[in-house]
């Protein structure tokens, strides 16, 4: 039962964001970078196959949020999750992943609007927290559905079971942001100038 309610909440969140994207009448310049970033976010891990569970997805989604705005951030996160599940196989976690990554991108965009990322510490803290919160949300999908009643012991057990993974995820995201946020900002800025596109509104 809880699962149905949570599913409805997730779908409403997704629908709200997708609707506002539709209402914007997006032009090619709005669409294309989201598509590219989603593909890189989902497949970039291939380049880091040598290091286990070292995935750039969150960092790519955060950078998209920063560079192209909250809505683009949300869409990149959500659709990157949906599309990779279309290849790997869907699961009940699909909407949870979509919303979790979507919100990471959205909040990255919002923080950038508020100009909070001018302190590097905030950016790295955001990266770390996003990794951990993502893991928590992912725990939630099966806690809500398959562990009943949800006792505090159950929560502790499952969260501590995933703690190592979540912290690794957060750390990886911080490392990616440390290495990529500035150079990618520069690269994307050059493209914006060269082609006069990709600007949030332009």
């Amino acid at each position: 039962m809880d699962l149905c309610i949570s599913a409805i909440i997730l779908i409403v969140i997704l629908a709200l964001f997708f609707r506002s994207f539709e209402r914007q009448k997006p032009r090619p310049r709005d669409i294309v970078p989201i598509a590219v970033m989603s593909a890189i976010g989902a497949l970039g891990r291939v380049l880091f196959a040598a290091i286990p569970s070292f995935k750039p997805t969150s960092a790519v989604v955060i950078i998209t949020g920063i560079q192209f705005g909250p809505l683009a951030g949300f869409l990149t996160g959500a659709l990157s999750a949906l599309a990779s599940n279309m290849f790997l196989g869907q699961g009940p976690w699909t909407p949870w992943q979509m919303v979790a990554w979507g919100l990471i991108g959205f909040f990255a965009g919002m923080f950038q609007r508020k100009n909070w990322f001018r302190y590097r510490g905030v950016l790295y803290g955001f990266g770390m927290l996003s990794g951990i919160l993502f893991g928590w949300l992912m725990n939630a999908w099966y806690l809500v559905g398959y562990v009943n009643p949800i006792t505090w012991q159950a929560i502790v057990v499952s969260y501590s079971a995933s703690a190592v993974m979540d912290v690794t995820h957060g750390l990886a995201t911080v490392i990616f942001l440390f290495a990529l946020e500035k150079p990618w900002g520069r690269k994307l800025h050059r493209l914006k100038i060269k082609y006069g596109i990709f600007d949030g509104r332009g």
């Binding site: 669409i31 291939v46 869409l75 949906l82």
Partner: peptide
């Protein structure tokens, strides 16, 4: 109901094999 989003999704699906090839 979501034509632009569906197009975006279709573009991502097209980019997947292409990105893999680029990698």
């Amino acid at each position: 109901h979501l034509p632009a989003t569906a197009l975006l999704l279709s573009m991502i699906l097209k980019l997947f094999p292409e990105t893999r090839h680029k990698i």
